[in-house]
Simulated assay, not measured.
Amino acid sequence: MDALAAELRALAPSCGPVRLVAVDGHAGSGKTTFAGRLAAALGGAPVVHLDDLATHAEPFDWTERLRAQVLDPLAAGRSTEHQVYDWTLGHFAGTAAVPLAPVVLIEGVGAGRRAVRPRLARLIWMELAAEDARRRGEERDGPALADFWAGWARAESAHFAADPSRPYAATTVDGVTGRISAGTVGEPSTSP
């Protein structure tokens, strides 16, 4: 993880002075966990969770909120904050700060979408089959959210069919082990 963090810090800025790094993959593939580990390796890099910008009614229509509340201010060299959606209350409640930093992570399904890619320094994909990721998510969330997962799976499938991220990822990470996949950018050196 330290080698990947050093590599990301060395990239050219992609969004104003920031190296914007996306962690994308299917829901339940380990994006949040991996982004947290990477943020720690980066010395506490800010992480924008796309679940905070999505809503029940608009699970994938958060691009404009991300642009206006996060990307444009960072591109202008300013710290910012964004609204946070409360999934229990069903509306936006509160905000999350995004300090200006050398590297800022965005994580969530669709983080590497077409509208965001021009501002990315790196796209990381969590490699886990959709059905395995869904099973993991359902186990995590319990039977009370089974209907949500069924609807989510349809929406996610439609999203990736129309706007795939995986082909644009320079780095892939095994969603089970959390290890950077062989043959991708950021792979740890095997030399002594």
Rank of each mutant, 00 (worst) to 15 (best):
D174L: 05
A129Q: 12
F160V: 14
V23F: 03
E139A: 15
S181H: 07
P192E: 10
T172V: 10
P13V: 15
A121F: 04
A96S: 14
D72G: 00
S157E: 15
L42A: 08
L8T: 06
L120R: 08
S29D: 05
L38V: 06
E127P: 08
V185E: 05
W87K: 08
A96I: 13
G25W: 00
P46S: 12
A6T: 11
A170T: 06
R78Y: 04
P13F: 12
A146H: 15
A121W: 01
E7N: 06
A162P: 13
G77R: 13
A182D: 12
P102T: 04
H56F: 13
H91P: 01
V104F: 02
G90I: 04
L4N: 06
V18N: 00
P192V: 02
E156L: 09
W152E: 04
L4D: 05
L105A: 04
R78W: 04
P59Y: 10
R19Q: 11
G142C: 04
Q69E: 07
D61C: 10
L38K: 03
A22R: 05
W152G: 01
F92I: 10
D24E: 05
G77A: 06
I124D: 08
A121H: 01
A129I: 03
A39M: 09
L53P: 02
A133M: 07
R166Y: 11
G90H: 02
L50A: 03
P73D: 03
V104K: 01
P59D: 13
A115V: 08
L128G: 02
E58G: 12
H82T: 08
E138I: 12
S189D: 15
G108E: 07
K31Q: 08
V176T: 02
A153E: 15
G25R: 01
A45T: 06
A3Q: 14
A22Q: 09
M126C: 05
V23E: 03
L123C: 00
V98E: 00
A129K: 07
C15R: 04
A144Q: 11
D72R: 00
H91E: 09
G110V: 03
T63W: 12
A97S: 13
L145D: 14
R154D: 15
E131W: 13
F34N: 01
A22C: 14
A22G: 09
C15L: 14
V84F: 03
V18H: 01
R78K: 10
E107N: 10
G94I: 10
T184L: 06
R136N: 12
R179C: 02
A150N: 15
R117E: 09
D163F: 10
D24C: 08
A6K: 14
R19C: 10
E156S: 07
W87T: 06
G30V: 02
T190N: 01
A22F: 05
V47E: 01
A76F: 01
L145H: 14
G90E: 05
A144V: 12
D61W: 11
A75P: 03
A5K: 09
D147R: 15
F92M: 11
G43Q: 09
